[in-house]
Amino acid sequence: MASIKQLEKIASQVRRDIIRQTAGANSGHPGGSLGCADFMTALYFGIMKHNKKFKMTGKDEDMFFLSNGHISPVWYSVLARSGYYPVKELKTFRKINSRLQGHPATHEGLPGIRVASGSLGQGISVAIGAALAKKMDKDKRTIYALTGDGELQEGQVWEAMMFAAHHKVDNLIVTVDWNGQQIDGPTKKVMALGNLEAKWKSFGWKVIKMDGHNMSEILKVMKEAKAACGKGKPICILMTTAMGRGVDFMEGTHKWHGKATNPEQTKNALSQLKETLGDY
């Protein structure tokens, strides 16, 4: 496992990849991607047991499902940096004939992706299905899923929450990217989520809060979550993050949810993020 310093170095490169992918396509979703860069780096380089020689069924591996598919740039970066496909493929993001579709898809056969996402609210259900299959097969590995907070406004999420508790899907760790922002503004204004902790708890989940920008805390909490598996309850991590984290003019606002930086802004953003592994 990589050290905290190493993970932070990787996360910096992942953030550069995010800015460069979205700027290169002149579209995409940098805000949420930057906010989840630390968590996704920790997941792929410090937490999950996974194999870059990708197998769809994920037998004897941990599996990850991204429900908020629009933050594809961060996922594409960590997958490439993990060796699932060449890093230089990141430059095809959102372009014609690419495997790196605007939202993640299996259709073009990109290694590391197991289901399409983008239309929101579906990922937890899919993760539950994979978790149930692991139980049937007596496969002890863990299923991870990431969902946005705005996404929790979709009704299907609450169907999935009810199901996972009722059926004791306790090999499932769902992380909520709790950045408080969505396209039209702060979640509090658009459609308030209320007391998220109380809501997940009352649905029967074990809930842990986590700072999504503190690498050592991410590792510690995810370890704690993993240890809590197999005890009859699904696990929810409420992860506080700042949308646009790492670039001063992008941080903490919904304005960079779905907009790429122009050439000048790109230069400014990249000047704030150290190149640690080499740009593609």
Binding site: G58, S125, V126, A133, E159, H166
Partner: peptide, 27 residues
């Protein structure tokens, strides 16, 4: 052991089926 009651929640059922199929089941 190969039956899953999902309750009145069809959207969730379709998602769970997709996850089961991903892991090699025939839902």
């Amino acid at each position: 052991e190969r039956f899953i009651q999902v309750g009145i929640a069809e959207a969730n059922m379709m998602g769970i089926a997709a996850g089961l199929a991903t892991a090699g089941k025939i839902p």
